[in-house]
Nucleic acid binder design. Structure first.
Lengths: 112, 112
DNA sequence: CACCTCACTGACTTTTTGGTAAGTACCTGA
DNA sequence: TCAGGTACTTACCAAAAAGTCAGTGAGGTG
């Protein structure tokens, strides 16, 4: 989903940041606090390691998530929301609520 | 962006509905009232006829937009938001606001 | 010394999405 | 009869996103 640039509205810009199959799920998982890579892999069911890391790196480069490495063996890496990420998640709440409210309708009208 | 089903959260469901390069732009354009096909083509700059109709059909099948044909020559077809579409647009407003508020940061950190 | 965990990384393939360009149908007015 | 305006439709191709799968490194455990 290559977004149009320069953005024509805020929605456009936001879509560019949260676009992709896994980013909303990841944001959702991080909503309740920092998570290790392995924890995210479990919580975001269905994601592969490659996609997870790819999306995390994108979110990191957009300053939505923060990555912290603990120099241990075995390694430990924690991902958390930045302030910007928190504000994004807050802005996403009504959308999540909308989706929850209309889930049955959405399911019913899903293509095939 | 094939969404995971069954949905794991409301955000997931919402993402399935508004996913695609042009849907947020179309929703945005319809926010201010009904629009004819040709009007949308002009307002949603850069969209091709094929993509526009494709996205409109998807939104229609999800009961987000309403399509009304006026039997005239030359033809006239008007697209408008349904109640569900209106409620979706309202839920999208905070996200639009977030995007507008942080547009410069988002632009600055955009990939390449 | 072999094996384990954890967090990656990279090559390659498949699937999905989007874009191009041409054509259709209809009636109107010149 | 022929161009024009409007809303599509189709076949084909390109690009982007996602998936598969095998492999890496570093230190701790048996």
């Amino acid at each position: 989903m290559a977004a149009v640039r320069p953005y024509t509205c805020g929605l456009d810009a936001a879509a560019d940041v949260i676009g992709g199959k896994w980013k909303p799920r990841i944001l959702w998982a991080l909503h309740h606090g920092p998570r290790r890579f392995g924890e995210l892999r479990k919580e975001v069911t269905g994601v592969t390691e490659k996609m997870l890391i790819q999306q995390l790196r994108e979110l990191e480069s957009r300053h939505i998530v923060h990555r912290e490495v603990f120099h241990q063996v075995p390694p430990k890496v924690e991902y958390s929301l930045t302030e910007l990420g928190e504000s994004l998640n807050i802005a996403l709440m009504p959308l999540d609520q909308w989706g929850a409210d209309h889930m049955t309708e959405i399911e019913a009208s899903r293509p095939c």
